[in-house]
């Protein structure tokens, strides 16, 4: 009944009235990978996650978790999935431990104290176990949402903007935790606006815009394919610049320190190859610096279509 593909989305369309939020999107998640869904606000990221957890029904298309259709057998798909929503939740009446006990019980695990203790400890919530949610800081509330998502030991974790509004230190520790979960074999789909962190963490990314999946691929390969390298050559005073098709800027440095040539080359091209082509006197070069393209550049290129 179950297969080894954590998520397979085929021709997904999601309409809200006359608004098409997701338009014919297809992709899949490989087992044990971290997959990032990136894109601006309103791109359709949350709508896709909402269909995965059955908060929204697809208008058309199929959404499968481990080969099980989420609309046909939602109890099975929900039991395999942990979901961290974007918005913080208050849980008015109950304390942290009670919330985790109830959430665990909903998945059929009513005596799950060891797992709850483990998560409280791992997410630094143990000393706050008997506090109400309103007594927690924003970061603690965020960690509680993650603990809830993991309390039933899911095989697939969905993180919708898990670090929104979180300070840099906590962000870093949350991403470290996510990487550890991957190390334990969990498959993870996340959305985030922190592109640098997605670049470090995600094995593959998909870029959404206007409800359409614009591109998808391995993070490193996408960066290589969609970005350029900027090579800055600082020349000694008196050295003359050379005309080249990759040259994008020449500027004089202050107080007679020479000039700087900035060349843009494809991400795959080596700097040594460029220098050979320029055929310059190495003695006239004071310094060389290279700025590599990154995921943010790739994202901008896809979104701006340049």
């Amino acid at each position: 009944m179950l297969n080894d593909t954590p998520i397979r989305i085929s021709s997904l369309v999601k309409d809200y009235g006359s608004l098409r939020a997701v338009s014919d999107v297809s992709f899949h998640l490989e087992r044990g990978e971290i997959f990032g869904l990136l894109g601006p606000n309103g791109a359709g990221k949350t709508s896709i996650i909402s269909t995965l957890v059955t908060l929204e029904a697809p208008t058309s298309g199929t959404v499968e978790i481990f080969g099980v259709d989420v609309t046909k057998n939602p109890k099975v798909t929900k039991s395999l999935t942990g979901f961290v929503p974007q918005e913080l939740i208050h849980h008015g009446y109950f304390d942290v431990r009670e919330i985790l006990e109830f959430h665990s019980g909903y998945f059929g695990r009513r005596r799950n104290g060891d797992r709850i203790d483990y998560l409280l400890d791992r997410l630094s919530l143990a000393e706050h176990a008997h506090k109400k949610v309103k007594q927690l800081s924003g970061g603690m509330k965020r960690r509680l949402l993650i603990a809830k998502a993991l309390v039933h030991e899911p095989k697939l974790l969905l993180l919708d903007e898990p670090t929104a509004g979180v300070d840099i230190e906590l962000r870093s520790s949350l991403w470290k935790f996510v990487a550890e979960l991957k190390g334990e074999g969990m498959s993870i789909l996340l959305t985030t606006h922190y592109i640098q962190e997605a670049e470090e963490l995600c094995d593959r990314v998909g870029i959404l815009q206007g409800g359409q999946l614009k591109t998808i691929g391995r993070t490193r390969e996408l960066i290589k394919g969609l970005t350029t390298r900027e090579v800055a050559l600082t020349l000694k005073p008196g050295a003359s610049t050379i005309e080249h098709r990759c040259l994008i800027k020449v500027r004089d440095l202050p107080e007679g320190q020479g000039r700087e040539m900035i060349l843009r080359i494809p991400a795959q091209r080596e700097v040594g190859e460029l220098l050979s082509e320029l055929n310059m006197d190495i003695a006239m070069i004071k310094d060389i610096s290279v700025r590599e393209g990154n995921l943010e550049d790739a994202l901008r290129r896809v979104l701006e279509g340049v």
């Binding site: 044990g32 039991s79 109830f102 019980g105 998945f107 059929g108 009513r110 334990e184 074999g185």
Partner: peptide, 21 residues
């Protein structure tokens, strides 16, 4: 890391979720 096959996962009981709510 070896992960237990998802085929090994138990089905969700019906009574425990109801009792929890």
């Amino acid at each position: 890391v070896e992960v237990a096959s998802v085929r090994d996962l138990p089905s969700v009981p019906r009574f425990a979720p109801f009792m929890t709510l």
